[in-house]
Amino acid sequence: MPVPPPTLVQPASAPQPAAKRRRLWWHRLILGLWYRPVEVLDEARDRGAWSAAVLLTLVGGALGLLASKSFRSQWATGPLEVVWQLAGLTEAGVLVASLGLGLVTHAIARTLGGNGRLRPTVSLFIVVFWVTDLPRLALSFLLPADHPFAQAVSLTTWGFGCALAVLLIRGQHHLPTLRSVGAVAVQMLASLALLKLGPIG
């Protein structure tokens, strides 16, 4: 009985199930941005991080409020109902402002040709913004905003935040570096003028 010639067509292998993505916990995201930012931003690509974004915004707003001398004096002398209302309004305002920064960043990136999704871009931009601002906020309890060392820390962390924001937009929206810089430039310059440097002179 003749043996049939071997076939050159191999049977199709069964498709392998896609590996399940590991959940990116907020504490890994927040801490990882400081010592392995490229890896963390790559792992966070196309993921929302709203819990971390809201947590950092509330913590940042609370630290900024507590560091204010006028708020502390009002806490010591004024009625507590007014103080709590002021704190609530401040936190709400910080949340709205942070969301606005993220939305503007996403809109500019899409205008420049990006194709990223809204939810990951906005939430991760808020995380990057407040993670890099935490050292300045912590230092504001010890030194005035116009102290040279405080301003040096503010400039350093602001520069680090700019670099992380550019990496974020480049990865989320698949934009070249120069366009990514353009997408975050206005927001980061506004934060430098309004938040990080404080009064000079």
Rank of each mutant, 00 (worst) to 15 (best):
H147Y: 12
K20P: 05
R47S: 06
S154W: 06
A87K: 02
G116T: 03
Q74K: 13
T57N: 07
W75R: 05
S154I: 09
V186E: 08
G114E: 05
R28H: 14
L31Q: 04
L89M: 13
V96E: 08
G93M: 06
E91L: 15
A183G: 08
L168N: 01
R36W: 00
W84G: 02
F129S: 13
L56K: 01
L56G: 03
S123E: 02
K69A: 12
R36S: 12
K20W: 04
W130T: 03
T77G: 09
L143I: 13
A49L: 07
L137V: 02
V127G: 08
E43T: 05
L143N: 15
R119E: 13
G171M: 02
L89K: 11
L63Q: 09
I30G: 00
N115V: 15
S123M: 04
G88T: 11
P2C: 02
S13Q: 14
A97P: 01
V153N: 07
V3R: 14
A19P: 08
A190C: 12
M1K: 10
K69H: 13
K69S: 15
V82Y: 09
W25M: 12
V131L: 05
A165R: 01
P79M: 04
V104R: 02
H174N: 14
R28Q: 14
G61N: 03
L175E: 01
P37A: 11
T156M: 10
E81H: 14
R28C: 01
A163I: 11
P17G: 04
E81V: 15
A53I: 07
L63I: 12
L41S: 06
V122R: 04
G48Q: 06
V59N: 09
H174K: 12
L33T: 04
H173R: 02
L167K: 06
M188S: 11
L112G: 03
G78C: 05
L89A: 12
E91W: 15
D42H: 11
S98R: 03
P120G: 08
I200P: 03
R119C: 04
W130C: 01
G198N: 12
T121R: 04
R170C: 01
N115P: 00
V166S: 02
R22M: 08
E91M: 15
T177H: 10
T121H: 09
N115D: 15
V54S: 07
L101K: 01
L192C: 14
Q85N: 11
G116V: 04
G48W: 00
L80G: 06
L89E: 13
M1A: 13
L56M: 11
L89T: 12
G61W: 02
F160K: 05
G32H: 05
I30H: 00
S73I: 10
G93R: 07
A67H: 09
R21H: 10
T156A: 15
P120S: 11
V54L: 15
M188F: 10
G78A: 15
A165M: 03
Q74M: 10
R117V: 00
R110Y: 02
G182A: 06
G159D: 07
D42N: 08
A19E: 14
L139P: 10
